[in-house]
């Protein structure tokens, strides 16, 4: 069985060519830009920008279709629930009130609430293409070295690399163990009573976890024998030094970040941009 993490696909697009470090930094900058704004204009721009990046990276839409479906359902759910929980939250944060329709009781739909919920949905929507682009175009090998270059300790980076290395092994073990236990009649579905279900979960977890623990010593020894931990620092075979395009990409992201923050600090002068003032 071949399981590749992140379904990372080796293509030769502009984004694939960027160093892992650049992509990690851009990813973080984009995420902070989105987190720090509640301005529909900035969010619309960010969404457009993320979709453009998504197109450049040539990720086949089929690959993310299913996830995208789940996301839409989740967002719809969130949209409705947020309204039910706090129907006047939009009014509260924006400070103006323009009613549209009353469902009775406290459930009065306002333009402010609708605007607030759309902004929130938009924030979520921006995150996804940014994440897709990063995870689908970054070689897992490069990921750990990139983390190390932004200042994360080498030990933690190695841990991340090991997780990605052994995830397919653990998942293959899981499949084998789960099938072998099913053959013995271990059932975790609703057919069994809750108490028995928990016992059955243990029958699956115990061999999976303990056989994983068996490997810890072997891997740790193998690493020590090859000099792991000799010094605090280490170099990374898969690290790619930054090129002209990397600096360009970083510059674009930083400019976007600065503009977005400036709008918040100097133009809107608040977290929320309120288009209803003066209606």
């Amino acid at each position: 069985m071949k399981i590749k993490l992140f379904s990372y696909n080796q293509l030769d697009t502009l984004i694939h060519q960027l160093s892992g470090l650049t992509k990690l930094l851009c990813f973080l900058i984009m995420i902070f830009t989105v987190i720090l704004t509640y301005d529909i204009r900035v969010l619309l721009f960010m969404l457009a920008f993320a979709i453009v990046c998504f197109r450049i990276s040539k990720i086949p839409f089929d690959q993310v279709k299913l996830i995208f479906g789940y996301i839409l359902v989740f967002l719809l759910f969130d949209f409705v629930l947020s309204f039910v929980f706090a129907p006047q939250y939009g009014v509260e944060v924006l400070g103006t009130r323009h009613e549209i329709f009353s469902f009775g009781g406290p459930f009065v739909l306002t333009w402010e609430e609708l605007y607030y919920l759309s902004c929130k949905t938009m924030k979520y929507l921006c995150m996804f293409p940014v994440g897709f682009v990063f995870f689908f175009t970054t070689n897992p090998s490069e990921f750990a070295s990139s983390l190390n270059h932004i200042g994360v300790s080498a030990k933690i980076c190695t841990t991340v690399a090991l997780t990605m290395r052994y995830f397919p092994d653990v998942s293959r073990d899981y499949t084998n163990i789960s099938l072998a236990q099913q053959a013995r009649g271990i059932d975790m579905s609703r057919k069994e009573k809750l108490g028995r279900r928990i016992k059955n979960v243990m029958a699956l977890l115990a061999p999976l976890i303990f056989s994983t623990m068996d490997r810890v010593d072997a891997i740790a020894n193998a690493m020590s024998l090859r000099g792991y931990g000799k010094t605090k620092k280490r170099t990374w075979y898969s690290f790619r030094a930054l090129q002209r395009n990397d600096y360009l990409a970083l510059a674009v992201c930083i400019v976007i970040f600065v503009i977005s923050l400036s709008i918040r600090l100097f133009v809107t002068k608040s977290y929320f941009y309120n288009p209803f003032i003066g209606w």
């Binding site: 090859r226 000099g227 792991y228 000799k230 010094t231 620092k233 280490r234 170099t235 075979y237 690290f239």
Partner: peptide, 12 residues
Amino acid sequence: IAFELENDNVPL
């Protein structure tokens, strides 16, 4: 293959 060299801080 490079693992031990990485730990020895060998230049890329």
